[in-house]
Design a protein around this nucleic acid. Structure first.
Length: 918
RNA sequence: GGGCGGUUGGCUCAGUGGUAGAGCACCUCGUUCACACCGAGGGGGUCACUGGUUCGAAUCCAGUACUGCCCACCA
């Protein structure tokens, strides 16, 4: 690299993240660095980010995930990939309708007051006003997304994709109309899918009721947690193998309150060990009961309506009552009849709607379903073949288990905000086969009334009132955002995408469905095997949507509890960015983004990450103020490198290798740890300190030091940039560099050329010696400024060479007068020297009259204890014939060598103890 | 009920067979030369428990306890 910048802006004394972050984001955006166009000369790397809801603002989960996504994006961009990270938002049916309805409620209105059209207008207004504020927040976080390609799930082109998806599945019979017990959200008056239901343990009661036989010959006891459903009972079931009920199967029972007769049926669904072994069957209000009802051909009495109140079928005493009011009344009425056997306290697994937090009412209703089995099969195969990788790997099994047990997907929602179902109905009366009039309903796929009229052959038709589940549209995200169903150049180039990183709770809701739709809709005749599955024709492949699925950790509060609005323990990442800067916010999250499932986040983490940024800032300022106009930042010729230079380059090479390897496996914690340790512990604490002497010199010694400082710092900035983009850009611009932005600089790769074991050994000895001297001074309470004389007695020629070449450095770092390299121990007889053994040498410090014999004996005793422990351990191993015979020979040799070293230390300490004791 | 994680110093976490680590907190010392958002030094852990495999276990296996998450139609 040769520096191109002649003007180098100076770094302000204080690190002010706010100013530099705003400045550089604007710069990057203005220069279009984040925009990607297909480039056949490069390898593509693409990500379509999980589209946040338009109701959303950045939360900690977003901050974590987008820090990861942006780190991966920037890393690949620097590595020379044609890199696209495509952002967008999700219309989020229920969530958006929820907030808009809440706003209406504040005006005393309901959506029905407005009517469908006006209500949808309101939703659009909301989206215009707030729907894109999250983009601004992503920018604050530093995300290098392609803002020219933002997508929204209600964009015209996106709607085309959804229509195509629906048409295809409808025509193939995968979408069908079914009557099922669905999870009914009473608040939204809509069905919700199984995965949008949370189970919450709530305290409740288990009511034991008596149902008398119709002939008056006694009763059967049943238990229920939902007494109001009694009114809809069609039967009582007991297990066919249950001897208690065998004599009575087929007999009729008199259903209390409703006063109708219902049979006792034999069904294995009743478990003899629970309660009395008999269970009431309410086919319209419970999924199990529904299935049981189908088996026994039982009537389905819908007694709870869509609004959660009792229907006329519940009888005149109950009709119109809220379900919970009706519950109390049923219990009271049963008590009045003397039919309550007992009421127990009971913990009920209560289904709650994720969005409205209302208790779900299982309700029999007609809905649109998708048959998932045929779609799941290839999605299972592709993962089993390892073409889609899950990180951490355990999610693969979780995914497969769910896919293998996949159930039909209820896709219709009784909402207004969303994609209206493109099905048109007509109803006509004709003669049935037995001469009775029959009502026939027909439907067809159509996007417009004209199409519907043509298909149905009648003007008398209307569009289905329902909208599609939000996830029906997000399921298409990777290919629909890239242009599908058109054969776009983007789709051809950027698809399949490389990475899908997301939270674990939407693995089924979203990830699994994207895999299914991707494979089902994107087909290519010329694609490598790794991109998909071969179709039966032997030429076409169905293409996977992404290669890696990374499931990131959940960000919890510092007590380990989920952050939630209701608990008020949430942290707004924007506040953190304001306070500590985006870089510190990102770095603190990435440091914790390891293999652990949870992150217990506390603000202190970001504060500490800010300290790292500050350290980076100050060390860089030091380097910059010591450069001059002639500093190019080029790596000096190898014969000019000193031992510390060789050492820092060797360490840098190792760090480069570690960081690249960690990023490749999404180990953000390892990458950040490696860089943190390299920069702070090695570069700042030792290399920069050692460079200070050289910077005071003149000529070549100085210029080599200057260029190396600039070179190592510049390389470190490139390594750090994907994680902390702003501060690194600011410093990089001030350093000698080539190119207009660090965004586009090349990412360092480890070559091994700088690896230097000899320099590392020499530096270990240098560092150990320095520490030994400092330690001795400290332990004897010698003021740090006191300049003493020290001596080092090397154990061998290598140590001798290393100490000789670094003697001045050590003297300077440990604040000594001089460090003499000696061949015999200095005058121990004088009693004015103290010593510490290190690996490779014995270090002596002349302290003259400052010597406190008592203290020194204490110090020696402490060291002896430690050394003795090691010797015992080592001797124990070596005297074990099993170890000597069975362990690897090099391991045994290593242990012998170690023992020798410990013994030498021990002897030296003993000798000194003898002297001082005398 | 089934499945999957976690349990390492006061706190938050690294560490998958060979001398127990980091950051923070704590104690001592230090504001002349980038940084007190700092520097130097130090103390602190029988790696949850029990058993097994192994020459050798924080690490592998089995079980136990506690804890978290996901899935599931027990009234």
């Amino acid at each position: 690299m040769t520096a191109e910048n002649t003007e180098r802006p100076e770094l302000p004394k204080a690190y002010e993240p706010k100013e530099i972050e705003a400045k550089w984001y604007a710069f990057w955006k203005e220069h279009g660095y984040f925009h990607a166009e297909p480039d056949p000369t490069k390898t593509p790397y693409s990500i379509t980010i999980p589209p946040p809801n338009i109701t959303g603002s950045l939360h900690m989960g977003h901050a974590l995930n987008n820090s990861i996504l942006d780190t991966m994006t920037r890393w690949h961009r620097m590595r020379g990939f044609c890199t696209l990270c495509l952002p967008g938002t999700d219309h989020a049916g229920i969530a958006t309708q929820n907030v808009v309805e809440r706003n209406l409620a504040a005006e005393g209105l309901t959506r029905h007051d407005l009517g469908r059209e006006k209500f949808i207008e309101r939703c659009w207004q909301w989206r215009e006003q707030y729907g894109t504020r999250i983009y601004y927040q992503f920018e604050k976080l530093g995300c290098s997304y392609d803002w020219q390609r933002v997508r929204f799930t209600l964009d015209e082109s996106y709607v085309d994709a959804i229509m195509e998806e629906f048409r295809s599945w409808y025509e193939r019979g995968l979408i069908y109309r079914g009557t099922r017990v669905v999870n009914w959200d009473v608040k939204f008056q809509s069905a919700v899918s199984d995965i949008e239901v949370e189970i919450e343990e709530r305290k409740g009661k288990l009511y034991h009721f008596r149902y008398p036989f119709a002939d008056g010959s006694g009763f059967i006891t049943i238990a229920t947690t939902r007494p109001e459903t009694l009114l809809g009972d069609s039967a009582v079931a007991a297990n066919p193998a249950d001897p208690r009920y065998q004599p009575y199967f087929g007999k009729m029972l008199r259903l209390p309150l409703a006063n109708r007769d219902i049979p006792l049926v034999a069904d294995e669904y009743a478990k003899p060990e629970f309660g009395s072994g008999a269970v009431k069957v309410t086919p319209a209000h419970d999924l199990n009961d529904f299935e049981c009802g189908v088996r026994h051909n039982l009537p389905q009495h819908i007694v709870i309506g869509k609004d959660g109140s009792m229907t006329p079928l519940a009888g005149p005493d109950y009709a119109g009552l809220d379900r919970f009011v009706a519950r109390k009344k049923v219990v009271a009425d049963m008590e009045a009849l003397g039919l309550v056997e007992k009421i127990e306290d009971y913990t009920i697994q209560t289904p709650i709607s994720e969005r409205s937090k209302e208790v779900i009412e299982p309700l029999l209703s007609e809905q649109w379903f998708v048959d998932m089995k045929p779609l799941a099969a290839p999605a299972i195969e592709i993962v089993q073949q390892g073409k889609i990788q899950f990180v951490p790997e355990r999610y693969k099994d979780i995914y497969l288990r769910w896919m293998e047990n996949i159930r039909p997907w209820c896709i219709s929602r009784q909402l207004w905000w969303g994609h209206r179902i493109p099905v048109w109905w007509t109803e006509e009366t004709e003669s049935g086969a037995d001469g009775q009039p029959a009502t026939g309903r027909r439907h067809c796929f159509a996007r417009t009334k004209e199409q519907a009229v043509a298909a149905l052959g009648t003007e008398n038709c209307w569009q289905d009132e329902d909208v599609l589940d939000t996830w029906f549209s997000s399921a298409l995200w990777p290919h629909a955002t890239l242009g599908w169903p058109q054969d776009s150049a983007d789709l051809a180039y950027f698809y399949p995408t490389n990475l899908l990183s997301t939270a674990q709770e939407i693995l089924y809701l979203w990830v699994a469905r994207m895999i299914m739709t991707g494979l089902d809709f994107v087909k290519r005749t010329e694609a490598p095997d790794s991109d998909g599955l071969l179709e039966p024709d032997g030429r076409t492949r169905s293409i996977l949507p992404f290669r890696d699925v990374y499931v990131h950790a959940t960000v919890l509060d510092e007590k380990g509890e989920r952050m939630s609005k209701s608990k008020g323990n949430g942290i707004d990442p924007i506040d953190l960015i304001e306070k500590y800067g985006a870089d510190a916010t990102r770095f603190s999250l990435l440091q914790q983004a390891g293999k652990n499932q949870d992150i217990k986040y506390s603000e202190q983490r970001t504060d500490l990450a800010g300290n790292f940024c500050n350290k980076l800032w100050n060390a860089s300022r030091f380097v910059l103020m010591n450069l001059n106009e002639t500093t190019t930042g080029d790596l000096p010729a190898r014969d000019q490198w000193t031992v510390p230079d060789r050492w820092i380059l060797s360490r840098l090479d190792t760090t480069i290798g570690l960081v690249n390897a960690a990023l490749a496996t999404y180990d953000m914690d390892d990458a950040s740890r490696a860089l943190y340790a390299f920069f702070w512990d090695e570069f700042c604490d030792w290399y920069v300190e050692m460079a200070k002497t050289r910077l005071r010199a003149e000529g070549e010694e100085k210029s080599v030091a200057q260029n190396l400082l600039a070179f190592v710092l510049e390389t470190t900035l490139r390594l750090l940039h994907p994680m902390i983009p702003f501060i690194t850009e600011e410093i990089w611009q001030a350093l000698p560099h080539a190119g207009e932005s660090l965004c586009l600089a090349s990412y360092p790769t480890a070559t091994g050329d700088w690896q230097d074991a000899a320099a590392e050994t020499a530096m270990s000895l240098t560092i150990a010696t320095t520490r030994a001297v400092r330690n001795m001074k400290m332990e004897l309470n010698i003021p740090p400024g006191t300049r003493l004389t020290a001596a080092a007695l090397p154990a061998d020629a290598t140590a001798q060479a290393a100490l000789t070449s670094n003697a001045e450095l050590i003297a300077s770092l440990a604040r000594l007068n001089v460090l003499n390299i000696v061949t015999t121990a200095p005058g121990t007889d004088s009693g004015k020297w103290i010593a510490t053994p290190v690996v490779g040498a014995e270090i002596y410090l002349e302290i003259g009259d400052a010597l406190d014999i008592g203290k020194e004996l204490e110090r020696i005793a402490k060291e002896l204890t430690a050394v003795t422990k090691q010797i015992e351990r080592s001797e124990g191993m070596l005297s074990n014939p099993n170890f000597v015979d069975r362990a690897a020979p090099e391991r045994v040799a290593e242990e012998r060598q170690r023992l020798t070293e410990w013994q030498a230390k021990h002897a030296s300490l003993e000798e000194r103890r003898r002297l001082f004791s005398a």
